[in-house]
Amino acid sequence: MALPEQTGSGEPLIQVENLCKIYSLDSGAAGSKGGGTVNSQVLFDVSLSIHRGEFVAIMGHSGSGKSTLMNILGCLDTPTSGHYWLDERDIALLSDDELARVRNRNIGFVFQGFNLLKRMTALDNVATPLLYAGVNRSDSRKRALELLHQTGLGNFAAYQPNQLSGGQQQRVAISRALVNNPQLILADEPTGNLDTQTSREIMAVFQQLNREQGITIVLVTHEDDIAACTRRLVRLQDGRVVHDAGVLA
């Protein structure tokens, strides 16, 4: 497969402008009088554009706002102000159902804690997004099994998450993320719960997906060697982008 060189061509897949996120907390416990609220701003005017086929690492200390940014990019949370276009669609204009559809069709999630559904086989875990997309059970399972084979877990389809190792669980999670052929994979510290060797294997899977299938991957991490596996590094500090440049391989 030829190396897809989509970077810089056409409209960006992700276009973020002046994104702000303010969390309002009830002040009851916070000490101020009356029923006022305490506002805490987590993102300040973040602007970012990511093109199709990019492999981006977002780094920052805890509290830097990287998880909040990921949640907004993943349509799990909404910004307080600013704009977010995903594939040229203004996310702020979408209803809850349309957001669910975007999460289902356009985005695949990989989490630090794997977030697989308990007491469900690996196969059913991978097939679930297809069920929500309205695909019937047998077709869903066929497609899910294909993906498990692709990530090297073909023999573990009938296992439940608690019977699998961390690395295997993360592979199941990646299979699930890929099952609806998304344009974008968002990975929130995908190697955070894994040992070095397994982390390297998981990163190899991501690199392969990016290189061979041209899937755009945005990954949050605070480990430098993980970030080094990507092709672009965005560093956040106190809710602002302080660094954005290509990674020297």
Partner: peptide, 16 residues
């Protein structure tokens, strides 16, 4: 609650 969150993340809408 967490299961519901996961299901929503992978595309379950409110009706589902």
């Amino acid at each position: 609650t967490r299961e519901i969150g996961i299901r929503m993340a992978i595309g379950a809408n409110r009706r589902a």
